[in-house]
Design a protein around this nucleic acid. Sequence first.
DNA 1: GACTTAATTTACAATGTGTTGGATAATTAA
DNA 2: TTAATTATCCAACACATTGTAAATTAAGTC
Lengths: 201, 201
Amino acid sequence: MPDVSKQPTDPRVLRTRQLIKDAFIDLLQEMDIEKMSISRIAERATINRVTFYLHYRDIPDMLEKMADDMIEDFKQAVGIEPEKPAAAEEEDWFMMLRLLEHIAEHHKFYKVILGSRKAPIFSERLLNMLTELISARIEEMGTESFCYKAGIPKDIAIWHGSAALIGTIVAWLRNDMPYTPAFLAKQFYLLTRSRIETKGE
Amino acid sequence: MPDVSKQPTDPRVLRTRQLIKDAFIDLLQEMDIEKMSISRIAERATINRVTFYLHYRDIPDMLEKMADDMIEDFKQAVGIEPEKPAAAEEEDWFMMLRLLEHIAEHHKFYKVILGSRKAPIFSERLLNMLTELISARIEEMGTESFCYKAGIPKDIAIWHGSAALIGTIVAWLRNDMPYTPAFLAKQFYLLTRSRIETKGE
DNA sequence: GACTTAATTTACAATGTGTTGGATAATTAA
DNA sequence: TTAATTATCCAACACATTGTAAATTAAGTC
């Protein structure tokens, strides 16, 4: 069994996992995930089927670990982890921009992984992450937020906001990104902020 | 092969399909859809495995047809089909209410089918339906709408709105409906309408 | 160059798939 | 009620995929 630790260094392991990932993405464009099999993946990846089992228990396990990696890359790219209790106001806009730019940069991957209705795990994980993010935002704002003033329960606002965010991104990807990240970020900012600031009167 | 037409009348057919549907919903609560097999479904439904093939080609086909039925029931329950260019304003609120009440009435079904991240087909279909719905709404409003005044492209507003709607419903189901349909409809109305009316000044 | 570990090869039992042909039972029409 | 139709059951089949085990080969590390 190859190194299970997060960051394998052996080039053979890296190569194999990359081959598997590429093969999976490749196949996902051709067939439903239902018809996906370890045999097919191994064949497309030009590795022995048994080798697959040295890295993943089964396909769901593979998806799980790939989703882990995705979230990891995502957080790092968008720069969420670090400090930043945020400068509120425009900080949201910048984060949204970084987020969309990161997706645009790897759109080939994200379109297949999120856009196809085939592997819900990925959208699911991203939704969870964004939910935390938005949740933290709203929490930060406290009595400043629109929800508070309008008496809207926070959790409802969070459900609404995170679903709108991921849904907009997915639709944007499915339509082959007809707007620039900056433009879309601006529009989303308008759609969202108008709720939080405007009515506060 | 049993009657393929939309409304089979033979009680044997109705019984079998109901048994399959119940077994499927039942199994979905226990296991990932990945581990779902025709064998298991047939066993749980207390029908012969071969009988399954008399009704559905395979599992994806079964999901497809069940989703068709769901959308059909949904449209009928919410009463979308008929005329009603809508009285604008509060009409939205009433539709949202009927929609949530219908879901609440069959929450056992919808929670499993939508709430579990296992059968994306259903959420997908519902999303499409709601997208059409919201799309029509925004189209109706024309130059009255917030998007128009703020210069937000319609499609972005539609992506945003429909994703927020279905996402909120799914989250509501997953959390075991902590709010009444009426209350949630009201909150959603506030979150949405504030965008469309407020900033229009 | 020796050691370590990944990947390959071959093999096997177990399970699920999709399709037969014929028997049985329920439904419907005469 | 009888006779028809037709859904379901049953047994069996070839086939593919799965998950695991052994021994071997190849690549990477020290």
